[in-house]
Amino acid sequence: MFSLRMALNSIFREIWLNVISMLSIGAVLFILFSVVIAVYNVEKLTATLPEKLSVMVFLREDTRRDEARALESAIKSENIVKSVNFISKEKALQDMKGFFKNEKFALSGLGENPLFDTIDVRLKGAGSSAKGVNAFIEKLKGMSAVDDVEYGGALVESVYSLKNGLRVFGLTTGSIFALSVIFICYSTVRVLFYRHEEEIEIYKLLGATKGFIRSPFFIEGSIIGIMGGAIGMCFFLAISRYVFGKLFTEFPLFSMIYVPDRSFYILPVMGFVLGLGGAVIALGRLKY
């Protein structure tokens, strides 16, 4: 209780230094959280991408029906595959006729059925990597009954590389911002520690333990961190309420941005952990 009182006294005594630290931490945590949300949204959007694209496997003309069925079973047994659907060339022609029923002239010159037997393959979204999908496509192409394989591979590859790039970016910037918060708390606590040096000397001479001397600074670092996190949370709430609101109406694409419910409560917790960490590093080894 006494340590808390000392920490609060110190915060109010050096109010401007502490307010500036809190605002800086708030801004950094806000940016950090925005990066995390961006990475999270890209992850979420791309998680089901392979599932949404289908792989169309065209079979050779001379493939027998029993061979096609065997191939269908073989493809289905692959881990990456969610479902398969065999479409015979007769069924494909029938579907095409149904599609062009009002424009019969489009099919008038058609003699023998020019279509191929195909297998429509749907992939699992979760756990699929671009590398895994490519390897699967190559495997399909190497099968004797397969004539050709169509898949939006280039799209998936570029989305995956964007996703990986964002992950690296998120991790790098996240680490830099987290270190920045630690550094801000470190510097603030260090400055406060030096300003209280004379008091600390008196505490030591009166028999104060290291814990007694350090605890107000730990509390102070934690409070600065928590307050910084709360400021960052307020920034985010204000921006998500007013700026996103306007963006959603002007640009519908932005309405896809998803912020997990109450996830911003993590900011004060992050502030607390990083603030305490900064204070611990700032005090280092205390000598008598």
Binding site: E201, I202, K204, L205, G207, Y288
Partner: peptide, 20 residues
């Protein structure tokens, strides 16, 4: 470092420069 505070609590010191 852990036992020095124990000793200091057993000694009352009156400093020339008060140290208040």
């Amino acid at each position: 470092d852990s036992t020095i505070p124990m000793l200091r609590r057993n000694i009352g010191v009156v400093f020339q420069d008060f140290k208040l």
